[in-house]
Nucleic acid binder design. Structure first.
Lengths: 258, 258
DNA sequence: CGGTTCGTTGAGGCCCATCAATCTATGTGG
DNA sequence: CCACATAGATTGATGGGCCTCAACGAACCG
């Protein structure tokens, strides 16, 4: 149990169980730089969870949020829009993710944060986070580390959007979600999947219609199976090959690290 | 001159003059969090400049660099590749940019850093940067700030790659380069432009052939004019409208800040 | 002056967008 | 319990933006 506090719950537990403390199972808690005491200090400034309906804007572009949002339960996204109104999600946010890391040091928010499902959201006041950063080197490094990992993830996303076909993009995204949600057991994977095909389209830079056709083909080939808000992948190796996916860029804690 | 040390050279000077000290005109030096003393401390750990030919890999994916590279002169890029071999540049690096910020805290590099032109490259040993970060809060914040600004830039890039047409993408990228290189005077802009159409294609997720056709049209319409390794834009408002460009996301120091 | 790199042009085709309709599941009020 | 509304998935027809393949031109350089 002490081990869990130090290193985060196991991936499977992260995806399914209710947090026992405000930050357990959170992206923050997986930092290799955070001591148990520092994690505890951070937990002291987390606000009570707020319940929000799906499709609500938590914060919008141009605002100056004074809090960092944590998606405690449910899914959300960062969303950007062209002047013409076309949407693109630079990031899907799953339970434990921070919605607006930038607000730590940047005044103006450059994207929207919107829930994709009903969700529970907590927050950390920016000023108090900055105060903790000043006192605890591990906390400071943790936030920098989070930003750097996000950089890499976004860089790999540009590769998908710029160079991969719709089929490859979808496979790659599903591989990433599987790895982040931690539902992999052997070759098989099964993970929470509450997305609409329109959500997927906005994450992949495609139209919902085309997402539909591509998904159907993957289903027909037996590569994926969709159940009740659940995605099952019988052979992750196959999906990885289709998507050209290598999980190294996610910088997840490998099993032997714990 | 003191002002220049504190706030970085003016944009025009950044693009054209030779640095008077190792970090002047650098992305680092534009941090709102860096005191003159801290900048000086950083300058103390910068290695002498190394001269490299265009097209050379400075570091490659999978390596574990112990230095942060600074492009002092010339252009470079971060480059990612699909297993099939298709390339995408998540970032173009212009003089003053850091090539592998991730290496500050991430062991494994997830992309290549390659020069696009002949270049001068300096470096800061990672361990010494970490030591300075531990001592100087402004330096710590500066690196986090750099990572967060990169995040926003990458997020906006996903919008271009996912949702904008080739014409819009090109216009948007040129707007960004113009803003970063700081060649804008009134409505007009003129800035260094050493890119090949193939480089552009890898930055935009297009083929060189199509980049060529789109550029020709912009030239024919008088929106841009290409000279000797120089791009001239007579009416930035026009180009911004085509690309749907709003410079806010770059978080550049606005003129009145200085 | 021959080689190399880069820009340009043309023909043809495919992937994915667009537009529109239908089907299904879920929920809601009477 | 049914009529109806709504959201999301599905299907079909058509078209266009960009890719692919290929060749040629232009600039630069040792």
């Amino acid at each position: 149990m002490i081990e869990n506090l130090r290193f985060g719950l196991s991936p499977v537990a992260r995806a399914t169980s209710r947090p026992s403390s405000p930050l357990s199972g959170t992206r923050l808690s997986t930092s290799p730089f955070l001591s148990p005491g520092e994690l505890h200090a951070l937990e002291g400034i987390v606000s009570p969870a707020r319940s929000v309906r799906r499709g609500t804007d938590l914060i919008g572009e141009g605002e100056r949020p004074d809090q960092l949002l944590i998606i405690a339960r449910g899914w959300a996204c960062r969303s950007t829009t062209t002047p013409r109104g076309d949407r693109q999600y630079p990031a899907l946010l799953v339970p434990g993710d921070i919605g607006n890391l930038d607000s730590l040091l940047l005044d103006r928010l450059d994207y929207d944060v919107r829930t994709l499902t009903d969700a529970l959201v907590t927050a950390m006041p920016r000023d108090r986070v900055l105060a903790l950063i000043a006192e605890h080197p591990g906390i400071a490094r943790t936030f920098t580390w989070l930003a750097l990992v996000e950089n890499v993830t976004l860089s790999k996303l540009t590769l998908s959007l710029g160079r991969r076909s719709a089929r490859e993009r979808l496979a790659h995204l599903l591989c990433e979600l599987s790895a982040r949600l931690g539902g992999e057991v052997g070759d098989e994977s099964s993970f929470s999947y509450p997305l609409t095909q329109e959500h997927l389209a906005d994450a992949l830079g495609l139209t919902p219609v085309h997402v539909n056709r591509v998904m159907q083909r993957l289903r027909a080939e037996g590569v994926i199976a969709t159940g009740l808000r659940t995605m099952t992948v019988p052979d992750m190796g196959r999906l990885r090959e289709i998507g050209g996916f290598d999980p190294a860029y996610l910088h997840l804690r490998s099993p032997q690290d714990a």
